[in-house]
């Protein structure tokens, strides 16, 4: 009898723990997107071009406005950097968004969901500093769920690369993100 009582109590305790309210249901804007930067070559040779891919992983149930926003007043995804001396920045290419209708919008909105990759063309100039270098990037976005919008966020993303004097040692890196160089 005592054993039965213990089993019943233990089982119910497990149910209680499972049913307890978990952490807050609405994350902050910063928690909605995790972003990381990857460089297409390792090392990067002086005088060569390379790409930086910024992978944005967007939490399930949330979206961010795509670069091509659906209305003037929306805040579009934006990637910027103050490129250090010795590097030259080209254009950022943003992926196309997906047109989605949300409970709060009358017309479809062009948004990013799940995972998107932003790509930036850069060049290491002949005078690029050698060794480990950092390119500090700033990723700005504004996220919403189906019901609520979160304040815009600017996340710092660090692109790290190693610069060499000659192209001999330079190898393609992260082929899963830079398939053209396979």
């Amino acid at each position: 009898m005592r054993l039965a009582a213990a089993v019943v109590a233990g089982g119910l305790l497990l149910i209680v723990v499972a049913a307890m309210p978990s952490r807050p249901q609405i994350p902050s804007g910063r928690e909605v997107v995790s972003a990381a930067a990857y460089v297409s070559s390792d090392p990067v040779a002086r005088g060569s071009s390379f790409q930086v891919a910024v992978v944005m992983k967007i939490r399930n149930g949330f979206h961010v406005n795509a670069r091509e926003k659906s209305a003037d007043y929306l805040i579009a995804a934006d990637l910027r950097a103050e490129v250090p001396a010795g590097f030259k920045a080209g254009d950022v290419s943003y992926p196309k968004g997906e047109l989605r209708i949300f409970s709060f919008s009358k017309k479809p909105l062009n948004v990013y969901e799940d995972q998107v990759i932003l790509r930036w063309e850069l060049s290491a100039l002949a005078n690029a500093p050698l060794g480990a270098q950092h390119i500090p990037l700033k990723l700005r976005y504004q996220a919403c769920s189906h019901e609520v919008c979160l304040p815009p966020v600017t996340q710092d993303v660090d692109a790290t690369l190693n610069v060499t004097a000659t192209a001999n040692a330079s190898r393609p890196a992260h082929p899963e993100l830079f398939p053209a160089q396979r």
Partner: peptide, 17 residues
Amino acid sequence: VVAAHYADKATRLSPKG
């Protein structure tokens, strides 16, 4: 269990609607 269920429901965001 019942109290926890309703407390959770009251604070949960549904994905749609």
